Simulated assay, not measured.
Amino acid sequence: MVTNCRLSRSSPDDRREHIIAIAADVFAQIGYGASSMSTIAARLGGSKATLYKYFPSKELLFEAVLRGRCERVLAPLRDLRSSDDADLESLLAKFGVAFLTKIYEPVSLDVHRLIQSEGLRFPELGKAFFRSGPDAVVEELRATLERFETAGLIACDDLRLAAGQFLGMVRGDHHLRYSAGLWPAPDDAEIERQARHAAQIFVYGLQRR
């Protein structure tokens, strides 16, 4: 849990990051609907005027929280996109390991549960989530697959669809059960096993025949 802290005597960037951290804590604890800019300002120990200077609305503040959380997932995936690895199965297995490792982190679970619980009442949450998270992840993977398709190593007429299907294969039903509180997060060995299995099946389906 992030502790209370006033915003004085810190740089603008540090203040912004501190606001985001406090807001993420508030959203996770009491939900988006029950949260308010007043609540967040009080937790910060500052004024609403200071808060609104950085974020004009709760929706924009929530989107900033999402971008920060989703960037944790995207950063290692971008590294793989720029890899010169010519073995697609190996690359996808690494992609899957990086993806699973991040979505099983507690902060990712907080976001997932928040979207699931409040997305119907607040459609803007789902839109912000997909802009910052799933859509960006799919695009990273689509671009990775495009390199192999252009080189004639795989055959696929809808790379975006294929990218989404691979991510679904990697998650399987373990993540659904995890987010429902039924199963614990898998350990590193199980994450690697799931990623390699999904990559093997997926690449076999894309091979030119």
Rank of each mutant, 00 (worst) to 15 (best):
M1W: 10
T3Y: 12
T3I: 14
N4Q: 13
N4F: 10
N4I: 11
N4G: 09
C5A: 15
L7W: 03
S11R: 09
D14Y: 12
D14K: 13
R15V: 12
R16G: 08
H18T: 04
I20Y: 00
I20S: 00
I20W: 01
A23M: 01
D25L: 01
A28P: 00
A28G: 04
I30L: 11
I30H: 07
G31L: 05
Y32F: 12
Y32T: 03
S35I: 09
T39P: 09
A41C: 14
A41N: 12
A41Q: 08
A41H: 08
A42P: 12
A42G: 13
A42K: 06
S47T: 14
A49I: 10
L51H: 03
Y54M: 03
Y54K: 01
S57Y: 03
E59R: 04
E59C: 04
L60K: 09
F62K: 00
E63P: 00
A64Y: 01
R67V: 02
R67A: 09
G68M: 07
R69E: 14
E71F: 05
R72W: 09
P76Q: 06
L77V: 05
R78G: 14
D79L: 15
D79T: 13
L80Y: 05
S83H: 04
S83N: 10
A86S: 15
D87N: 13
L88S: 02
L88V: 04
S90V: 04
A93H: 02
A93G: 11
K94F: 07
F95K: 03
G96W: 00
V97T: 04
A98H: 05
A98G: 02
L100G: 00
K102F: 05
I103C: 01
Y104D: 05
V107D: 15
S108L: 07
D110F: 03
V111W: 02
V111N: 02
L114V: 02
Q116P: 00
Q116V: 11
Q116W: 08
G119I: 04
G119F: 08
F122Q: 06
P123T: 14
P123C: 14
L125E: 03
G126P: 00
G126K: 12
F129C: 09
F130A: 12
F130M: 13
S132H: 03
G133N: 09
D135Y: 09
R142G: 06
A143F: 10
L145W: 01
L145R: 00
R147N: 08
F148H: 06
T150A: 15
T150M: 15
T150Y: 09
C156N: 12
D157L: 12
D158C: 11
L159K: 06
R160D: 07
A162Y: 01
A162L: 08
A163N: 02
A163S: 08
G164H: 04
Q165G: 07
L167N: 06
L167T: 07
R171L: 13
G172H: 00
D173M: 09
H174E: 15
H174P: 02
H175Y: 12
R177S: 12
R177Q: 14
A180E: 10
A180G: 10
G181N: 09
W183I: 08
W183C: 11
P184W: 07
P184C: 10
P184T: 11
E190W: 06
E190R: 08
E192P: 03
A195H: 03
R196E: 12
H197N: 10
A198V: 00
A199I: 02
A199K: 01
Q200V: 06
F202T: 03
Y204W: 14
L206N: 05
L206T: 06
R208G: 02
R209M: 14
